[in-house]
Design a binder for these strands. Structure first.
Lengths: 156, 156
DNA sequence: TTTAATAGTTAATTTGATTAACTAATTTAG
DNA sequence: CTAAATTAGTTAATCAAATTAACTATTAAA
């Protein structure tokens, strides 16, 4: 009934890859006592230069909750909850902005920096395995296509 | 602190693309009164030939709950819940397997077939927009890379 | 200087998911 | 051939992630 379509195959393919990826990542993420979302927030605060969002727009000042909500595509209320958990775990701290007193800037604690540092080798090893067999040229080409597709999705 | 890495950029890129994709899809999915997961289950039952899982392994008989659980990477208990909702909505029915009385085969109702048919034009239009600007050759190349990466992730 | 908009929080709720324990049916291994 | 193990599915309790709506405080705009 539903016909074969290259477009649809690609998009369902991206969805499946992401799903499998998250369940693989869980292995080293929950070994660190984190949920996937908590982990994502931490790498945002660590300013991981591989994050598409940070590639697209540079951030000088530490991020605030509403930027995070926007980047992750969720509500501010949701971010508040996630932040509370990370605060309890003493992995982040909030610093009031001097210029705008509505804003609280989010920063990692030394504990979080240390945690990320210890996770990084496993993370890189895992990521490398996921791309084994592709040449640098192929990877660059793939990333370039992916960025074009992502831009399309966001602009639509 | 975290270094730039082509591998990591690709994997975070896939994750972001999938996230944005789901939020875009929600537009036509929830117009049909479905959640994302309910929608995914329906296209499995509709045997959408674009689903990577169905591309990898052919299914003659209608799917059963545990196959679905395996395909989506969730627990059987979760599938039971999702199925109950779809049963209430009269979008699927369960048929007892003649050979193995533990098994209940899942099938779409005519109502679901009709629903999917009405959704299909919007879905295709949306999918097409997400891949605008890429040639057929580029799309095929991208899909081929994506399948290699997905296989890596699953095998690791 | 009112009015709008923005940042963040709170409370109530929903959805999606999990684990653990269970029944029933089928397979496997001694 | 039967006892033990596995598989399919369900149930109940619970958790995590997310939402909406209403709220305070602050800043920006008309």
């Amino acid at each position: 009934m539903i016909k074969k379509s290259l477009d649809t195959s690609i998009l369902l393919g991206i969805y499946e890859a992401a799903t499998k990826l998250v369940s693989k990542n869980v292995e080293f993420v929950e070994k660190a006592g984190l949920s996937n979302q908590q982990w994502i927030i931490l790498i945002y605060l660590a300013k991981d230069p591989n994050l598409p969002y940070l590639i697209r727009e540079k951030h000088e000042k530490p991020m605030m909750a509403s930027e995070l909500a926007n980047a992750l595509g969720v509500t501010r209320a949701n971010i508040t909850n996630l932040i509370n958990v990370l605060l309890e775990k003493k992995l982040i701290k909030q610093v009031e902005d001097a210029d705008d007193r509505r804003i609280k800037r989010l920063m990692m604690t030394p504990k979080a920096e240390k945690l990320i540092k210890t996770m990084q080798p496993n993370r890189l090893k895992s990521n490398k395995e996921h791309l084994v067999g592709l040449t640098i040229k192929e990877k660059k080409e793939f990333l370039s296509y992916l960025q074009r597709i992502t831009k399309n999705i966001m602009d639509s």
